[in-house]
Design a protein around this nucleic acid. Structure first.
Lengths: 145, 145
DNA sequence: CTACTTGCAAAGAGTTTGCTAGGCC
DNA sequence: GGCCTAGCAAACTCTTTGCAAGTAG
């Protein structure tokens, strides 16, 4: 399950042309394992236990990258101090992949539940997980042609 | 269905004076089976499971060869990082993958059309292709536990 | 047998990291 | 002071290339 999240992180980094570095994976992993919210310094100290050479700037840079990729959430408990936490691995989400510009839009749909129900009755198959990618063209790319 | 594509690949390679090597067939096959989009490294790792001696350079060289032969499509998710996918369509079918016994059942569902319609109205996104994998447990495997 | 291909190692292009030195409430 | 960013050389990721060994036709 936690490796699932890691793969997802790799995939997202890749698809955005970001490089998959050990530091980024380590920081993501630490956040995942820790579960709750962390601030930059706490994350730094935890990561340092495993990779003492990691730098605080990398922590900050990685946090904003992960936030940009929507993998973590920034919590403003107070003005001076930001906390971060892994985004809800809760609701399943799927992807719209634009073949024109490469943008990846995440979506959810209750219809996926209907598909599961149908598959259950048609094939007597109990679905536990789904992976849905829809490819096509986004509004902007369609307008350009 | 999938052997159809393989034969086509052989034929095309031949007709262009390219040699039909196990590596090229393997890589093409992996891409075909995977269905969705892959980048060079993902393809490399998948292929390595079946033929551990394959090299990353072969993956890159084969990808550009297959692109040249128009057997795969290069998706520019961003400037420097490319993804690839098998060309050519056909009746869309999706997969049920049993986590117990590994069986893969193909299915179709009109509901996928509804998802496309919904995605169109919600995100103004025109779907041209879909890749849907549902994982879970088939009847037999459920009865055994 | 000959020309095309592969695997390896290493180069290249471009990004990311770790420092150190600041900047901002 | 406490928290975060900037600038830059060095390190690294991803891709391509050169070459000797291997293989298809």
């Amino acid at each position: 399950m936690s490796t699932e999240g890691l793969k997802e992180a790799r995939r997202l980094l890749r698809s955005q042309g970001k490089r998959v570095t050990p530091q980024r994976l380590l920081l993501f992993e630490v956040m995942q394992e820790h579960g709750g919210h962390l601030d930059a310094d706490e994350l730094y100290l935890l990561a340092k236990k495993r990779e003492p050479r990691i730098s605080l700037s990398t922590v900050y840079r990685t946090l904003s990258l992960l936030k940009e990729l929507d993998l973590i959430e920034e919590l403003h408990f107070d003005e001076e101090h930001h906390h971060y936490e892994i985004k809800g691995r809760g609701a399943e989400h799927y992807h719209l992949i634009c073949l024109g510009c490469g943008e990846i839009i995440e979506f959810e749909s209750p219809l996926t539940d209907h598909i599961k129900a149908q598959v259950k009755s048609d094939h007597d198959f109990e679905v536990t997980g789904a992976h849905i990618d829809l490819k096509g063209y986004c509004k902007r790319c369609r307008q350009r042609s």
